[in-house]
Design a protein around this nucleic acid. Structure first.
Lengths: 135, 135
DNA sequence: TAATTTACTTGCAGATCGCAAGTGATCCTG
DNA sequence: CAGGATCACTTGCGATCTGCAAGTAAATTA
């Protein structure tokens, strides 16, 4: 299930980017197609990694959220993020990455705290090359 | 590059299963096709994650090995392994997983030590559902 | 009530996947 | 030394997936 680029990005964006809705993912700057996004969200739900809730304020909106199983991916996602920052071209600020490397457990704990508190404030800013520019 | 199921499996098998050759991967029990394996090995080389050396004892054989960049994936791979053992059906023995969870840093250090020493002894046995049965 | 927004679905061309058969280089055996 | 076996692939092709662009239905907004 996770050996799929788009699924990984969706989980990451839910976890650290503050994405919650279909539109949030579309506008994350990664260029995912609507049919693929829809398909992956469906599969991640079926795999029990995310849940979908209809927005209370707006019946059109679906709010996606990681499950317990999904948030358990935090350590792996963090390590992949660190690896990516070290080895791939990325806009991630060096001091931020250095800090994360030194404070792995704190970052994981904070990720889990925000998840439990339904706090969708991004843990990190969008720092992929195209991210954040289209807002 | 790693948002690809087969690439992840190749890196994992190099890292912890003692796989080194094309045939090792084919017989790992995952069912990868020869054209896909060839393609992924090529891409992982191009990405600088693995290197290929012609076998000294046998000119036909190619020995694959993780690079520095590749072995840096150990923490992420370990976390994914732990997550998979917790959340997916797996033949991994529970006590082994519990031990790994308690000794993450030791396991990572041992993985890196074996890599540096070109020691391809598997860190873990093949415990996916079909693994190890075809040998 | 019409326009807009949200989350999708659809059709289709191009790309990828995986099966089975095949190739060339190298090694082994009689 | 020739034939058979092994190793790492390549090829052709049908099936499946991807991504583009246009479209749909439900809900909201002006």
């Amino acid at each position: 299930m996770l050996g799929d680029r788009w699924s990984l990005l969706i989980v990451r964006d839910l976890m650290v980017r503050g994405c919650q809705t279909f539109r949030d993912f579309l506008q994350s700057g990664e260029g995912i197609a609507t049919n693929i996004l829809s398909d992956r969200l469906k599969k991640l739900r079926a795999a029990g990694i995310i849940v979908a809730e209809t927005g209370a304020a707006d019946g059109r909106r679906v709010i996606y959220r990681l499950t317990e199983k999904g948030i358990d991916l935090a350590p792996a996602m963090l390590e992949l993020l660190i690896w990516g920052a070290r080895h791939e071209k990325t806009a991630a600020p060096r001091p931020l990455i250095a800090w994360i490397e030194k404070n792995r457990e704190s970052v994981i704990a904070e990720t889990q705290r925000r998840w439990r508190g339904r706090d969708s404030t991004p843990l990190f800013p969008a720092f992929n090359r195209t991210g954040g520019r289209k807002l």
